[in-house]
């Protein structure tokens, strides 16, 4: 089927599309690659032509235990945030998909509003709350704020997937005697699996990269983006590039490992 469609496609447009995809990826990765190159540059400020090759920026950050701490903290926060906000996002999306009730508008507003709040002011407002209930300046303070910010993304992705589902599918499962939980487990969640995985990845990514709110609520528990923000605002040296590249290298290896795990699992699943 897809063979036929491909055959009817002219070769030129296929090549054009391939080239286009490459250009988009080049655009996305250009700043990352440049950052990597300049992380080995001896000059403090990036200009062309390059200065000499140096590893001193990496030596600086590797000697700095704060960077390691911040990295571990960022990963922890991102992972926990991803799980909680995807759970919340999925539940909210399902509620919207399945039920009609009084106050639904308000409920959805509450669920989707957070990304519209400017982050700088959101940071101060979150700090105002958390410090009053004695929960500020902790790692979990960042998680709390990030879940607020991220669950709308998860909700949007899950809702998108649910809207592609035939609502009668679930009803059919009920008619066959499945409880709501069983129907959820055997019909809805498997159907939403790609969306759930995407939501997990995306919320982790958003949390991992957030600095404005984290600066306020984290107290002295810095995450990587907060650290970068502070260097960028008050110092500016290739430590920024070194941290960025280092974090990039680790995250891409994690992704590759995760990919391989998922693939082997899929293969096994297919075989058994």
């Amino acid at each position: 089927m897809s063979d036929r469609s491909r055959a009817s496609d002219s070769a030129i447009s296929t090549w054009f599309l391939r080239l286009y995809v490459l250009v988009v990826f080049a655009f996305v990765f250009a700043p990352i690659i440049a950052s990597f190159v300049f992380s080995f540059n001896s000059d403090r400020f990036p200009t062309i032509p390059l200065g000499s090759f140096t590893t001193k920026w990496y030596e600086t950050i590797f000697a700095d235990t704060d960077v390691w701490d911040a990295f571990a903290r960022s990963l922890t926060v991102a992972a926990i945030t991803a799980v909680i906000s995807t759970t919340i996002g999925f539940c909210t999306a399902y509620t919207d998909f399945r039920y009609r009730f009084r106050g639904k508008g308000f409920y959805l507003g509450l669920a989707l509003l957070p990304p519209t709040v400017p982050l700088v002011i959101m940071g101060l407002a979150m700090l105002a709350l958390l410090s009053r209930i004695n929960m500020s300046g902790q790692v979990y303070s960042i998680v709390i704020s990030h879940v607020v910010l991220c669950s709308p993304f998860a909700m949007a992705i899950c809702r998108l997937r649910l809207s592609q589902m035939d609502p009668s599918l679930e009803a059919a499962a009920w008619n066959l005697g499945a409880s709501q939980w069983q129907a959820m487990k055997t019909v809805i969640i498997p159907f939403c699996k790609p969306a759930i995985i995407a939501a997990l990845c995306l919320t982790a990514a958003v949390s991992f990269d957030e600095f404005a709110v984290a600066w306020f609520v984290s107290g002295l528990n810095k995450t990587i983006p907060v650290m970068i923000l502070e260097i960028l605002q008050g110092n500016v040296d290739p430590q920024i590039n070194a941290i960025g590249s280092f974090v990039f290298a680790i995250s891409i290896s994690l992704v590759v490992v995760a990919q391989i795990l998922v693939m082997t699992r899929d293969d096994k699943g297919r075989k058994s």
Partner: peptide
Amino acid sequence: WAMFLLIIPFFTSYLVRAYSWQIFLGNEGI
């Protein structure tokens, strides 16, 4: 893979990426 590659940039701080563009876009840039 494309999906993962697209999510990867988020793991390199947006600040770093924006800062990087300065090298490309400057008057004496790339």
